[in-house]
Design a protein around this nucleic acid. Sequence first.
DNA 1: CGCATTTGACCCGCGC
DNA 2: GCGCGGGTCAAATGCG
Length: 483
Amino acid sequence: MQLKKKKREERIMHIDLSLGAAAEDEEEALEEGDEDEDDEQVQEKGGEIIILGEGKEKTNQSYGKPREDLIKDELGLLKAEMNRMKEENKLLREVIDRTLKDYRELQMKFADFQQQDEPKEHIISLSLGGEGIQDVNRASGSKEMKEADQGSDDNELGLSLSLQTYERDDRNDQEKGKELKSWQPTVDGRLQTGGELSAITGQTFNPATRKTRVSVRARCQGPTMNDGCQWRKYGQKVAKGNPCPRAYYRCTVAPGCPVRKQVQRCLEDMSILVTTYEGTHNHPLPVGATALASTASAAANFMLLNEANPSSSLIPGSIPNHAPLSSYLSPYNLPNPSPHLPTMNSFSNSIGYSNIFNAAASSNDVHGRQLSLLGSHHHHQTSGAKYPWAMSSLSNPSIGGGSSWLPSKEAWNSEEEKSLAENVSAIASDPKFTVAVAAAISSFIKKDGQTGATTSAAQKEGESSSRGINKWKLESQSPHEKR
DNA sequence: CGCATTTGACCCGCGC
DNA sequence: GCGCGGGTCAAATGCG
């Protein structure tokens, strides 16, 4: 009877502390699979301490047991809990180690690729995970790509980094023309294979004017994605091949800002919004406004620097004096707030965070390159329901950003906002969650001081909401010249 | 009343 | 040269 009760309590504990994702699930599976009574009792002691302790305390009090015994009991229980926490820490550390190891390996690979890099007609693809996205580039069947994919498949948490670069086949002008004319359908084509994903796909089309095009795909319920800027709709058109109307917006943050964006629902998946930004902002982007812009900017800048300075790589600190990307990324606006933030930091270290359009336009090298950043959601995101930003973070890129630039109408709907607020408070009020996160972070920092050095509040939160959720894919592609 | 959105007309480039 | 399609303009309309 009491054993059953204990078991139930333990389950609750597991649910509340379900931060360790696969690792902890395994643990639970082991426990349940093994009907070893002894083991179970030991485990339960660990899991039950507080409840048991209280019960005993009451009992003891009623029977008038000596105080020393009570203290001893409590001490024992606390010790048991400590042991359990140690175990959890160990598991989490292992996961982090594995992830870091993957990351470093891929980083090395990327450095190799860079050395082989040729100035023209090449595609660089960086991906953090990528399951769920069948990139069109895969059709070219590069070995590196396949290797990277294999790497990502192995990752239990769905957190992996893969960097690929490969040459692009030369195409004749006719093919180029076709591709250019149908670039939007190409984007849709990616989507139809992608399952749950969010993406930023950037393309530079107009070498003459250095105009930048960045396409962002994200699951979004609202009519547009809130990206922190203010937009005014100036037109709508039904494009051929997609019954969903395409809306045209102009940036109204600053008068005369030439930036425009097109918004269209994906034909294959109506929940996905394809937003294409074009042009160069003539004003600074709102502070904290957009992780999206930062991330896209990161991608763009990365490409710029990479092109201009081939010696610079993703290696952290290779190019100093750039604020870390994470400074822009609140846990709610970061599609993949994860222990990979160090990755993102190092990434952004070499790319800076100025706005993508400025970056692209200011470079002589950027034109003729295509750049894309893709992120996909892990499919079995158990936390998705409870922590919905994991699902719809891209839809609400400004949540938690503290931005005063939030458009009143364009923002996510109130329902999402409400549920988000509820979830935030739920998490904040859950001490077990906090403890587990803190333990994971501290062990992570201890283990790897370098990558953990930039741990910030946002990062902590980011880690907490990252479990097995998202994957990112950052890629850059070769020239798509428009006209 | 002012501002944003809607929507039909118009412009322009490209392909045939 | 013509038709098509994407993109933009601007008057009409709606909303706070």
